[in-house]
């Protein structure tokens, strides 16, 4: 029951006892890695405050964060779920095209710029969430806006 997930035995080793009723329920995200990666910058843009709050709580609670920061953790999950919901509602086609591309390309973001651009535009138009990479040099184009990706397999995906 350490934090390691059970391997080789997905059927019997899992204790499915739910959380006690005193702790509010929150639906888990249940998303695989590619859609999460695709939406990560939008999650970051909207949920930064909650994320920082949660990480700060974990840092300051001296090894008791698992129990003490559940409230902040629920906020983080709800906020991310709201972002995914909104993206699904307004930009489902672009979103799906992008994360399927990521799935097919080893989750390398630079292989999928062609599908990322419409997604970013749609999300910015509808949700006002902008992809921004903190700490990027200011005198050059951010890497996700460059016309040509040096490391991409083909120019068809740029």
């Amino acid at each position: 029951m350490a934090s390691r997930q059970p391997r080789f035995n997905q059927q019997v080793l899992i204790d499915t006892t739910p959380l006690p009723d005193s702790i509010p329920k929150v639906p888990e995200i249940g998303t695989s890695s590619a859609p999460l990666l695709s939406a990560s910058y939008f999650i970051g843009a909207r949920c930064k405050a909650y994320n920082d709050d949660y990480m700060l709580c974990k840092t300051e609670s001296n090894g008791k964060g698992e129990l003490e920061c559940m409230r902040e953790g629920r906020k983080v999950t709800r906020c991310a779920a709201s972002v995914l919901d909104d993206v699904n509602k307004s930009c489902l086609d672009q979103f799906r095209a992008h994360w399927e591309c990521l799935d097919n390309n080893n989750q390398q973001l630079w292989q999928c710029r062609r599908w990322e651009r419409p997604l970013n535009k749609c999300v910015f138009d509808n949700l006002k969430l902008e992809k921004k990479i903190p700490g990027a040099p200011e005198n050059e184009t951010p890497v996700h806006l460059r016309k040509r990706q040096i490391f991409a397999h083909s120019i068809a995906t740029q």
């Binding site: 999460l36 970051g44 949920c47 909650y50 994320n51 974990k58």
Partner: peptide
């Protein structure tokens, strides 16, 4: 940006 989300679920 994803770590708090994943960590919260895991916790």
């Amino acid at each position: 940006y994803l770590i708090p989300l994943l960590q919260a679920e895991e916790d």
